[in-house]
């Protein structure tokens, strides 16, 4: 426990709050990298995922790609790009974008896919254009899951950006690697605590957003659902019943 006191003393030490490589500068770098990577990866993955979820086409390869990319070891991708591109910010940013795409893609297609097909049929029946169905029916209804994807992507980026300090001189991970080299556990632990706080704050904000984007109509129906849920409601309302004729 003594080590934690040392780490907190390290965080609170005014000497660490100014000059090059100070705590505010590292936090800023970390947030900035996370934001840039999230923007680039979202620009690629969200429209693609929305298209897959809307049309239902290309689902299998998307599942396979996002599943396969998940097996990719982050450190391996980082060091590989580090060798290819050299020291600097480009390598970690490209590596981080690649690693952030699977959760974003999965969130986007799962979100669009989760919308009840009958709701979409109804929207089409009342005369909505395809673009209106995407923007005004599927997007709002699928939004909580899409934001869920953004949430896990953000956590992944914050975590991997820490690791990226291994190949670049940026972000809060610097404190961990600097402390590791000089055997300064207070600095390592202090840096770790700051990263954990940053991740928890980001997660909290996105969790609140995720709750906020649930459309009012959906929220209302959910509450009544909880209070009186007949055991057979979903089977009767949701699917055609196949009694006695197994397929």
């Amino acid at each position: 426990m003594n080590l934690f006191i040392d780490a907190i003393a390290w965080i609170l030490d005014p000497a660490n709050w100014s000059g090059p490589g100070s705590i505010p500068q590292r936090i800023w770098e970390h947030v900035w990298i996370t934001a840039v990577v999230l923007l680039i990866a979202s620009a690629i993955a969200l429209p693609t995922g929305a298209l897959i979820g809307h049309t239902g086409r290309g689902r299998e390869p998307a599942v396979r790609i996002s599943g396969g990319l998940r097996a990719l070891p982050t450190l391996g991708v980082l060091t590989l790009f580090g060798i290819w591109i050299g020291i600097g910010l480009a390598a970690p940013i490209i590596a981080l974008v690649i690693l952030a795409i699977p959760p974003l893609l999965a969130g986007a297609y799962a979100g669009f896919e989760s919308v009840d097909r009958r709701t979409i049929d109804a929207a089409r029946a009342v005369g909505m254009r395809e673009s209106q169905i995407v923007g005004r029916v599927e997007l709002p209804l699928g939004m909580p899951i899409v934001v869920g994807g953004i949430r896990s992507a953000t956590l992944q980026i914050i975590a991997t950006a820490t690791l990226a300090a291994y190949i670049a001189d940026d972000g809060l991970g610097r404190f961990i690697f600097a402390g590791l080299k000089t055997r300064d556990y207070a600095e390592m632990l202090g840096g770790s605590i700051l990263v954990i706080l940053l991740a928890l704050v980001a997660d909290g904000i996105l969790a609140l957003t995720q709750r906020r984007v649930v459309p009012a109509g959906v929220r209302a129906s959910r509450i009544t659902d909880l209070r009186s849920r007949p055991t057979r409601s979903r089977a009767v309302v949701g699917q055609p019943i196949h009694e006695g004729n197994p397929e």
Partner: peptide
């Protein structure tokens, strides 16, 4: 983040 947990 994993690296932070390993250290903490």
């Amino acid at each position: 983040p994993s690296l932070a947990l390993f250290v903490a």
